[in-house]
């Protein structure tokens, strides 16, 4: 199994931390993982992108050029994700911010209102975690079954109080995938 995911959004949406947590969970599940962020000279704001791969095999190129799945966190990222998604790949769309339909008729499309769900849980900042839950459910690549223990080692002690909300966000994201 190899799942190559491309994640895209704007700065501040937590795209980078979602990618890191995704591969961290994958690593804890015994997978080979790699995470490569887009790093630019541009300062705050702007675009946030990451190439993320989890696999049972040795990983070849860390750069995801034809993703099996693409995470679309905002409107601006849709055209790029559509352009590179592999034939028959999965597009996971944050339908809170992406209001149009994709042109990719071959793609499996999963729509999750990440911002709405996150806001209901208590903070729009958890939208990335909602998305990660959806990604897990949609691809099955990272199971997220021992989530609580893994989150405890990922987050520093001072952030442990947010773990229940993170878990709820991830769960609701998974549930939102039909």
């Amino acid at each position: 199994m190899t799942e190559k995911t491309f994640m895209a959004g704007f700065g501040g949406q937590g795209v980078v931390s979602m990618g890191q947590l995704w591969v961290y969970c994958g690593m804890k599940e015994g997978l080979e993982v790699t995470f490569f962020p887009f790093y630019g000279a541009e300062k705050r704001g702007g675009i946030a992108r990451a190439s993320v791969i989890v696999s049972t095999e040795e990983i070849s190129s860390p750069l995801v050029s034809a993703p099996d799945s693409a995470v679309v966190m905002n409107m601006d990222s849709l055209p790029l994700c559509e352009a590179i998604l592999k034939q028959g790949g999965t597009l996971i769309i944050n339908s809170s911010l992406v209001k149009v339909d994709t042109k990719r008729t071959d793609a499996r499309v999963v729509k999750v209102p990440c911002n709405e769900i996150a806001e209901r849980i208590g903070d729009v900042k958890f939208a990335n975690m909602v998305m990660m839950g959806a990604l897990s459910k949609a691809t099955g690549a990272v199971k997220l079954d021992k989530l609580e223990a893994v989150l405890k080692t990922f987050f520093s002690e001072s952030k442990h109080k947010f773990i229940p909300m993170n878990m709820q966000a991830i769960q609701e994201g998974a549930d939102a995938v039909g």
Binding site: V23, E32, V33, T34, F35, F36, P37, Y39, P62
Partner: peptide, 10 residues
């Protein structure tokens, strides 16, 4: 190179 430096792996 920048890829090796910036990417995260186990």
């Amino acid at each position: 190179d920048g890829m090796i430096g910036q990417m995260m792996e186990g």
